[in-house]
């Protein structure tokens, strides 16, 4: 059966930090409406992959095609305008902006994003804290803010870098619900996770990275049968 071109197609992606060669030909595909995870140990190159797609790593090679458009040489602001939004690992909440200003910061790149009311319904905490400086929120609230912020933009592809890292189980569950809600709205998600159990509850497919390369791919259905293999990769 002939398939339409995936929403995001990354091929032979290489990236360097200065002299150090970090990605050695990463290849992944994300189809419209999917939630796909990148799993892998610390230092495997997951964050670098997202940053390279986003145009945040200065030296990169290979191909990043989004909606059929080549973006490997584009500046990060153009990549954002093309419809890719990043929620960074360190969250990137601005201390000199209050919660509302943080929320309104990323420009809308396409119609159809969530409006501020819908966001406040999904994250009531943010409404209560609307006037607080962004970094005065708890870790969980900051993570909500970081996700909410890009939901406004209407970007059809969201890249979330370890949104559950260091958060309490209730918050992790809330983030899980949020990701399912995002998926229900037809938004595509590329998710970096180390929390493999969590990834299992939200994703359609998983890629495993090691030493700057993709070394395995499994669908969520195959997951149960591939446990031993994955445990070996992830060292859990």
């Amino acid at each position: 059966m002939p398939q339409a071109e995936p929403l995001l197609k990354v091929e032979g992606l290489q990236a360097w930090y200065g002299e150090s060669h970090v990605l050695h030909g990463v290849g992944i595909e994300v189809r419209q409406g999917e939630v796909v995870t990148l799993l892998g140990r610390n230092g495997a190159g997951k964050t670098t992959t997202l940053r390279a797609i986003m145009g945040l790593v200065a030296k990169r090679q290979g191909s990043v095609r989004f909606e059929g458009q080549e973006l490997i040489g584009a500046r990060s602001d153009r990549i954002a305008r093309a419809g890719i939004a990043l929620c960074p690992e360190e969250r990137g909440i601005f201390a000199s902006l209050d919660v509302t200003e943080n929320l309104l910061l990323p420009p809308v790149v396409r119609p159809g994003g969530m409006d501020i009311e819908a966001i406040y319904t999904l994250f009531p905490n943010l409404k209560e804290r609307a006037r607080s400086p962004g970094t005065k929120l708890s870790g969980g609230e900051q993570q909500m803010l970081a996700i909410a912020r890009i939901l406004r933009t209407g970007a059809p592809l969201l890249m979330l870098d370890e949104p559950t890292e260091g958060l309490a189980p209730v918050i992790v569950q809330q983030i899980g619900r949020t990701i399912r809600e995002i998926k229900a709205r037809g938004i595509t998600v590329l998710l970096v996770e180390q929390n493999f159990r969590f990834a299992q509850t939200v994703a359609d497919r998983h890629y495993v990275m090691e030493h700057g390369q993709v070394v395995d791919a499994v669908s969520n259905q195959e997951l149960a049968g591939s446990m031993d293999r994955l445990h070996a990769y992830l060292g859990v």
């Binding site: 986003m54 945040l56 990060s76 939004a85 000199s96 990323p106 890009i150």
Partner: peptide, 15 residues
């Protein structure tokens, strides 16, 4: 103000 804190991220939002 945001760009003063983290210009790269502001640019990655499309500014």
């Amino acid at each position: 103000r945001a760009a003063t804190e983290n210009a790269a991220l502001v640019q990655a939002f499309g500014v």
